[in-house]
Structures are given as structure tokens and as C-alpha cells.
Amino acid sequence: MGVSLKRIPKKKYLMPGNAACPGCPETMGMRYLKMALGDNFVMVIPAGCSSVIQGIAPKSGIYSSILNIVFAAGASAAAGMKAAFEALGRDDVNVVVWAGDGGTGDIGFQALSGAAERDDDIIYICVDNEAYMNTGIQRSSLTPYGAWTTTTWKGKQEHKKNIPMILIAHGVKYVATATVGYPMDFIEKVKRASQIRGFKYIHLLAPCPVGWKFDPALTPNLGQLAVKTGLYPLYEFNQGAFRLSPIAARYKDPSKRAPIIEYLKPQGRYRHILNDPEALRRLEEYINEVWKWVAMMEKHYGAGKG
């Protein structure tokens, strides 16, 4: 299913003057989300940057119905809302969780896992900026190895938690990875997810100029570099079928990948490891690990399999 730019709504879903920082990936992502789904959905937003970005009540910079909810309850609140819409005869309404990496992989993980296991009919989007940005750049379980944060001054010592694969292991209907660097790919995935009944999860890598310390003009470029270096493969697991997303498939071949340093260099958070061969080696190793998971999925669930 291709998405044509012409058919994407032109409506202004995000007002200028919302509280996002310059170059914020979350407002980009939210705009794409609205482009994909139009008006027939409600959002559930647990604590995070997007709680603030909406602006000051009683106004909101986002043209959408939103239920803000406590940090750990994104998935469960969405499940409850969906149950209400079903009970009220409105099965067609999509309920979308818009949560950060903390709200997804850490404090909100129990609720997420519960909703996934119950196959609650919601779309869960993790907007992953790889740290607790809203509280001032503290590490999360999704912060990558080596990255500086205000709670890992010498760089984080552990690798990033692989949430999409953990969700696939839950046996859910749909899991995809995307980034604001490739909007059309993300929009396509959201559209596809919205047509499936059951639990859908989309991981949206969201490069954060403030927390990653890069020029705010480069947000989409960083998203693309994450894919091109092989750090962040784009894929879809759709009702038992796994496939690499076309724009990212070529990076399966290590020789096609951009050198990791191209991704690290523009980011101040990696400055202290740029000349540290051991740290760079560990990141290379991480890329290999990520692709092992992909290879395993392709082997068992790839085209023509299963």
C-alpha cells in the first residue's frame, strides 16, 4: 500500500506556538500521525515531552482529542477507552497511545505488556528520544550505550533495550519501527496498523536536538543516519509476516552501511567516545546484535515463510 503525498490531508493539525523546542521530532511525528489517521481517533498521552508540547489549558496546540494520563498508564488507559467506544457502538474509533521511551520501556512497561498480551485493540506509538528529555535528559533503558545524559556523565554503560522485539515476542498483531527521518514510511505504517484489529505497536525513533546535542536543523537527517548506519533497522511484523522496509533493506549488507562515526559526530552526547576505539567497537557489536535479531526474524517469518 503506497501513500501518495497528494492524498495526504492538508489540514493544519499542529498550531504554531506550541511548547515544543526548535527541531522537535515529536511535533513532526504527531503531524504525520494526523496525516495518516485524519480525525477519527483519540490520543492518550502519558507524562512526557508531549504532555507539555500541547500548550497551556484551556487551549491546546494540537487539533485532536487527548486524554492525558499518569506516567505508567498509557496502554491501560487506552485499552479502557477502546472498551468504552466498543460498548457505545463506536468500534471504528482508533485509540492511539503517544508515549516516550520512559513511558514505554520503563515505568509504563507493565501496562504496555498487559495490553499487548490481551491484544487490546489500540495503536501504541513509542516516540523514542532515547532518554527522559522532559525532566532534563536522564538515562532510560532505551538510551544507547555510550550516550552522555545527566545521570550518565561518562556515557551509559548498557545497551539499548530492544522493545520492538520484546513486543513481537508477545505475539501481537503488528509491530513496526519507523523514524521521523522517513515520514512517508511512518505514515504508511500507521495507516496499515489502523486497519488491523488488535494490538499494534510502532516504534518511532525521534532524534532530540536538545538531549542529543545537535543542530535543530538536522532532526530528520539524524533519523535517516540511524537507519543508514545500520543502528536502527526499519521493519514491519504484520500478523506473522516479517519484512525489512524497502528504504532500509539495503543496509542488511554491512558494506552498504554508512560508517557509524557519521551518525555519532553531529551529536554532542557522543563527543567523549569519538576517539575511544573500545566504545566504538561496542557500538559496532551492538549493530551486529540488532541485525542478528533481524536475520532470525527473516529466517522464520520472512517472505514465503511460516
Binding site: V70, S76, A77, G80, M81, Q110, G114
Partner: peptide, 17 residues
């Protein structure tokens, strides 16, 4: 649900809808 925290969040959200 998998916890009381989720139980009340779910019914609160359902009631909001």
C-alpha cells in the same frame, strides 16, 4: 488487567469516553 494501577486507569479512561 495486569495491575490495580491499570485497572483504575482503564475505567477512568473508559468513563472519560
Amino acid at each position: 488487567v495486569e495491575s490495580e494501577h491499570s485497572a483504575l486507569a482503564a475505567v477512568y479512561a473508559a468513563a472519560s469516553a
